[in-house]
């Protein structure tokens, strides 16, 4: 049996809204450690890895691990019915084919419940090794979203190069070329405006902008996003889900044959 009560229920909607355009159906795996989701997009170019820790929940009971397969579009429809400040409680039986979402208003004057049908989904689970990244940049999430949007209007692919001078995003297309350089800024008055670059070795990688732009749908989750890069390996784009977990996107680079 599963029972999980999340005071900040809107976090769930933000996570689902961030990934539902990349992945249509996914298993949400639940165990005593919490909720996790791992899924590749249909083109197998990117991988989503989400984890919400059990201690993020006010109440968490999971008697045995279970995989809840669901349509993320349908899950998004259900979560959209929750008020932005509602407390969300999930309940499911071990061998059931549904999961119930209960939404409670903060003043406890409105309670609703929605039962969502589960589905069987075959999914490959990939092992993601810990990587020593050459370059890690933590920047305001809004700035990342803006760079992706601006460059997408010019080109389809972006070269992200990290050097001691900063992190440069370069694209080109029919219109011409565009470069945006982000430099370390740890003196900004507001912490949410700060950019931190940790460079061990210079690295440059090429990516499809379409995916990087899609990842920016997670912007409402966090003030900052962290990009981690190593030569010839996928970039990891990570949004912290407050102190409750993380949403990570891995994007395979484009590599010369």
């Amino acid at each position: 049996m599963l029972e999980a009560r999340l005071v900040q229920g809107s976090m769930l909607r933000k996570v689902v809204d961030a990934v539902k355009d990349l992945v249509s159906d996914a298993n949400i795996d639940v165990s005593s450690s919490g909720f996790s989701l791992q899924a590749m997009d249909t083109s197998h170019v990117s991988l989503i890895a989400m984890h919400l820790r059990a201690d993020a929940f006010e109440h968490f009971r999971c008697d045995r691990p279970m995989s809840m397969g669901m349509s993320l579009a349908n899950l998004a429809k259900v979560l959209k019915c929750a008020g932005s400040d509602d407390i969300v409680t999930l309940k499911a039986n071990d061998d059931g084919d549904t999961v119930t979402f209960m939404f409670e208003s903060p003043k406890e004057d409105r309670v609703s419940d929605f039962e969502l049908k589960l589905m069987d989904i075959d999914s490959e689970h990939l092992g993601i090794p810990d990587t020593d990244y050459c370059a890690t940049v933590t920047m305001p999430a809004g700035e990342y979203a803006r760079i992706c949007k601006d460059l997408s209007s010019i080109g389809d692919t972006v070269v992200i190069s990290a050097t001691k001078d900063g992190v440069k995003f370069t694209t080109s297309g029919d219109v011409g070329t565009a470069n945006v350089t982000v430099r370390q800024n740890t003196t900004a008055d507001k912490k949410e405006d700060q950019t931190i670059i940790d460079l061990k070795e210079p690295v440059a990688l090429t990516f499809a902008l379409r995916y990087l732009t899609s990842f920016a749908k997670a912007t409402p989750l966090a003030t900052h996003v962290t990009l981690s890069m190593t030569r010839e390996l996928p970039v990891m784009v990570e949004y912290a889900i407050q102190d409750m977990g993380h949403l990570r996107f891995y994007l395979a680079p484009k590599i010369e044959d």
Partner: peptide
Amino acid sequence: GAKQRDISSFFSVK
């Protein structure tokens, strides 16, 4: 030009 790699080629199947 550069070729798009498949993400699963970077990670092992569990």
